[in-house]
Nucleic acid binder design. Structure first.
Length: 694
DNA sequence: TGGCGGTACTG
DNA sequence: CAGTACC
DNA sequence: GCCA
């Protein structure tokens, strides 16, 4: 790939005629640093291939910034055809000519480049969200009442597939925008798999690991009714019907709406403009209910501030539920059908939709102490009681606290590093901290294993703190803790990496301390980061992974599920034979059912289901709420955090959404092993979470 | 109407 | 013990 | 706040 890919913006007269790069007269394109140029060597042909429309111009410019060449005319060098969302395959063929389109051409819709940029990697091109639909473009009317409701089962297909992309990343991560599902949801589920549509999907299987992946993804996408199989649950024999009924009802409604909305989104030229204006530079769409979510989030924070724990949780659950809606929820009826949203919240949702504000919220802003409360509660180790007390004592500012209030040592540290501890940590920095700790661990004991947990493991682009799970095969807690406390941590202090310990179980040294909370800073950086180490005995690794991977809502839910099944789940393991008293208080400790295997714990709780696929393979669901689909599919981004897992489906069970799947290549195992012995998705004997990180 | 996760560290 | 924290 |  010689001169034409030199990333000089203007190839101008010297460029091969067919490959002239965009001659933007007004605006010069700022090339990204070379290593960020994910499109280097690629030649994009846009459809329509002009930059008249502002959104497309923006996309073209962006693609060029990231190294793509823009083919002004069709040529043999074109690698990718980027198709506007409102065009169909038939339009593509008409514009380019079927004879010109070769299997090597990648045909994707306009979402592809921005998504690649967002994830800084060339995404698999076959993903449904990137596909261009076959067949003639349909008018809005025809579209609106087209394929739905063929059979009662049909909606679940659509739901299923739209959900995959709709939920990805949204549940736990407000800041991780994702593309709207848009037209993808119109197509029959079998579209990608059966018709083998799209250049990238026609590649031979087994060619490389991605192809294998493609194939399996396609197969599973064709398996439409996955979620329903999970409704087996012994939880409540009689009411399970009711539950699934209501869920079906929701699906149907959602699906109906989707047709209306998505087509109008696609067709409405205004949309692109307004998006562009709001979202300059970053090509990210937002959740349609973002406004509602923001308002409810403010309410949640308000209730948090006044100490109403349960309302806070309810609001947060509702927010989680709203985030995975792909449609704008505007009416009470719509809202009330969503699990976690009841009458009161539904009314509020409607009020926000209609008036764009919430009277209840406005009536809360009046308390002059409220901002101060908020300020104080931002201090590490300061909750509502402490903050309130300080306000009652007349403190008004952080300065007041520094000079006058009596603070615990930890609060003092929290105050001194107020901004540090509240600022988000970029994913890359989390990894950098983890690498330093990992290296130190390896020096002390080569067998120590370290997994990055928390929101980072769920694929977030940035995190509030750094969560590290530390374990060692066959080792006990005492052994691991000894290595860490006696060797690794002192060394890291000496290196200047660790700054302070905040909660270090130093009290009874001989007891079973399992966590180390403190602060760290990268070499040369003044910014302190909150870092949490969790020491995990090998036998508890699975339970610890669940604990440290789920967000709090997920953990509450799964633990509640366990308790309803007379079990108990904590970070040490899943226990059975739990006897509970009058008000659910635990009487017996129970007997350990499973602690080592993450998968087994899901299984015992009835949350694990093996699904057989048409090809003879099977998948296993082992999923967490709030994990970004893309981060999992890519694997690379999570860097082994969710080993051997790709997200293929979304399952909602009560208020918990599961959407990570583990592949078991089953009959394809031999082939797979041959082709991807080093793949992180290959079925190995290693424990979950311990796939190679490098 | 009552329950809403289960645990660990600090003071 | 209450308060705060972890997910 | 929601839900059984």
């Amino acid at each position: 790939m010689p001169a034409q890919f030199s990333n000089r913006r203007k190839i101008s007269a010297k460029a091969p005629p067919k490959l002239s790069k965009k001659q933007s007269s007004k605006k010069s394109i700022q090339l990204q640093p070379e290593d960020a140029q994910i499109f280097r060597g690629l030649v994009f042909y846009f459809l329509p291939n002009n930059d008249i429309a502002a959104p497309r111009r923006k996309r073209i410019e962006k693609a060029q910034e990231y190294g793509a060449l823009w083919a002004r005319e069709w040529s043999a060098d074109v690698t990718h055809v980027i198709v506007d969302a409102n065009l169909r395959m038939s339009d593509v063929e008409k514009a380019i000519g079927s004879d010109q389109l070769k299997p090597r051409h990648v045909i994707v819709n306009e979402k592809y480049p921005p998504d690649c940029i967002e994830y800084q990697v060339l995404l698999p091109t076959h993903l449904l969200k990137f596909q261009v639909f076959p067949g003639p473009r349909r008018g809005p009317e025809a579209e609106g009442q087209q394929p739905r409701e063929k059979s009662p089962k049909a909606p679940s297909e659509h739901f299923n597939r739209s959900k995959i992309f709709a939920t990805a990343g949204a549940a736990a991560k407000p800041d991780n925008e994702q593309e709207e599902p848009a037209v993808v949801t119109h197509e029959p589920a079998s579209f990608a798999a059966v018709e083998g549509f799209g250049p990238s999907i026609t590649t031979k299987k087994g060619e490389n690991e991605d192809d294998e992946l493609d194939r399996i993804v396609a197969e599973v996408q064709a398996t439409a009714d996955l979620p329903l199989e999970l409704e087996d649950d012994s939880l409540e024999p009689s009411s399970s019907t009711t539950a699934s009924d209501s869920e079906d009802g929701q699906l149907t409604r959602m699906q109906e709406k989707k047709h209306k909305r998505s087509i109008s989104d696609v067709v409405d030229p205004q949309l692109g403009f307004s998006c562009m204006r709001k979202n300059e530079g970053t090509s990210k769409s937002k959740n349609p209910n973002l406004r509602t979510i923001e308002m409810l989030d403010k309410m949640a924070h308000y209730y948090d501030r006044i100490g109403d724990r349960w309302r806070t949780i309810s609001y947060r659950k509702a927010i989680t539920a709203l985030k995975r809606q792909t449609d704008y929820i505007a009416t009470r009826e719509q809202a009330i059908g969503i699990p976690g949203i009841g009458e009161r919240l539904a009314s509020k949702v409607e009020e926000i939709a209609c008036t764009n504000k919430l009277r209840r919220l406005e009536s809360t802003v009046t308390d002059p102490n409220d901002p101060i409360l908020l300020l104080f509660m931002g201090i590490y180790q300061v909750g509502l009681p402490t903050a309130s007390r300080w306000i009652a004592q007349g403190h008004q500012s952080l300065e007041d606290l520094k000079s006058k209030a009596d603070l615990t040592p930890n609060q003092r540290i929290g105050l001194d590093h107020y901004d540090d501890f509240l600022s988000r940590i970029p994913r890359s920095e989390v990894m950098a901290h983890a690498d330093i700790v990992r290296r130190a661990c390896s020096n002390a004991d080569a067998q120590i294993q370290l997994v990055v947990g928390g929101s980072c493991r769920r694929g977030s682009a940035d995190c509030g703190d750094i969560d590290l799970i530390i374990t060692k095969e066959s080792a006990s807690l005492e052994q691991i803790r000894t290595i860490l406390v006696d060797t690794v941590i002192p060394q890291l202090f000496q290196d200047g990496f660790l700054q302070v310990g905040l909660a270090t179980s130093r009290s009874r040294s001989t007891d079973r301390g399992s966590k180390w909370h403190g602060a760290s800073a990268l070499p040369g950086s003044q910014v302190w980061r909150r870092i949490d180490l969790l020491f995990v005995p090998w036998d508890e690794f699975g339970a610890a992974l669940i604990y440290f991977t789920g967000n709090d809502i997920f953990n509450r839910s799964i633990r509640l599920l366990a308790s309803r099944k007379k079990m108990r789940l904590n970070q040490h393991g899943l226990y059975g034979d739990i006897m509970r008293g009058e008000k659910r208080e635990r009487i017996t400790q129970g007997r350990l059912l499973e602690g080592r295997s993450e998968e087994r714990i899901f299984e015992i709780l009835g949350l694990q289901t093996q699904h057989h696929l048409p090809g003879g393979a099977s998948i296993r669901i082992m999923a967490y709420m709030g994990i970004s689909l893309e981060s999992v599919i890519l694997g690379k981004l999570v860097a082994g955090a969710i080993p051997r897992c790709i997200a293929l489906s979304t399952i909602q069970k009560r208020d918990v959404v599961f959407h990570i799947c583990e592949i078991d290549l089953a009959t394809e195992a031999a082939t797979a092993a041959k082709n991807q012995t080093t793949s992180k998705w290959s079925k190995g004997t290693d424990q979950p979470g311990l796939s190679p990180h490098n």
